[in-house]
Structures are given as structure tokens and as C-alpha cells.
């Protein structure tokens, strides 16, 4: 295998120590109840921990470069996917459309029967009569 500098087991235990310290930092946030600190420490620390595990434990630092490029592309795909749909799924409203809050989403049965349109109802009856199974109007 490629002869990089020969890490003893101590090297890994040291990395493990660093990871625990980082983990401790990320837990301080929720205890201190400071919201912005929590978010920064939690996600910042997560990225740093992921770097340590990937680089040192998975030996990605000495692996061929295009393997790292492959992981970077996969992550970029997820970033692209996030970027593509956050303006749409994450938004309350956009140009010409509004999201109805879950509580006001009408259940199908809630709409009252149409007030008018008696003649339309018979007329549409006979067009759908030859389909035996479907009931003709709404439900």
C-alpha cells in the first residue's frame, strides 16, 4: 500500500480526542440556550468532525484525488438540488402563487353543493351515463 508517514495507534486516539472535544463544543449550545450559537456550533462542528473522520480515519487525505472529486460532486448535486427547490418548497408565497397553511387546506367534502347550475347537472349526467362505474358528479 502507499507508504505514507507511519501513523501509530496514538495518532488515531489523538484524532478521536479532538472529535470528542468538538462534540463537547456542539453540545454547549443547547445547554446555554443561545439559539444562534447553537446553530453555528452544531453545524460548524459537524462539518469539522466530518472532515476529521473522512481525512484521517478514511485516509481520504492520501487517497487518489478523483475519489475526493467524486464525493465533492455528489455533495454538489445535493446542494444543487437544495438550491433548485428551496425557492419553491420552502417558500410561503412566490410570484402569483400562495401556499395555504396546512390548517386551512379544505378537505374534499367541505365545499357546499353548487347553488345554481341545475341544468348543467342533468346534461352532464347523460354524457357520463355510459360509464357504469363512476358516479357522475363530485362525490
Amino acid at each position: 500500500m502507499s507508504e505514507h508517514v507511519d501513523h501509530g495507534p496514538g495518532f488515531y486516539v489523538k484524532t478521536w480526542g479532538i472529535l470528542l472535544v468538538l462534540f463537547a463544543i456542539s453540545v454547549i449550545g443547547p445547554i446555554a440556550e443561545i439559539r444562534w450559537l447553537t446553530l453555528i456550533t452544531a453545524f460548524g462542528v459537524a462539518v469539522v468532525k466530518a472532515y476529521f473522520v473522512a481525512a484521517r480515519f478514511m485516509h481520504l487525505d492520501i487517497e487518489k484525488r478523483y475519489i475526493n472529486y467524486m464525493f465533492a460532486t455528489m455533495l454538489l448535486m445535493m446542494l444543487l438540488f437544495w438550491g433548485g427547490i428551496v425557492a419553491d418548497i420552502g417558500a410561503h408565497r412566490g410570484s402569483n402563487w400562495v401556499r395555504i397553511a396546512p390548517s386551512q387546506v379544505q378537505a374534499p367534502g367541505s365545499l357546499s353543493q353548487p347553488k345554481v347550475n341545475a341544468m348543467k347537472v342533468e346534461q352532464s349526467d347523460e354524457t357520463t351515463s355510459e360509464e357504469p362505474t363512476i358516479e357522475s358528479e363530485g362525490h
Binding site: 438540488f81 427547490i85 419553491d88 418548497i89 401556499r99 395555504i100 387546506v105
Partner: peptide
């Protein structure tokens, strides 16, 4: 399901991605 907070368009994005 929009009634529970989800969004049907999320599936469309997942599918067409």
C-alpha cells in the same frame, strides 16, 4: 400531503431530479 405540512411538488422535484 398539504394538509399535514408536506408538499406534493416536493415529490415532483425528487422525481424529475
Amino acid at each position: 400531503d398539504p394538509g399535514k405540512g408536506g408538499d406534493p411538488v416536493l415529490w415532483q422535484h425528487l422525481f424529475w431530479f
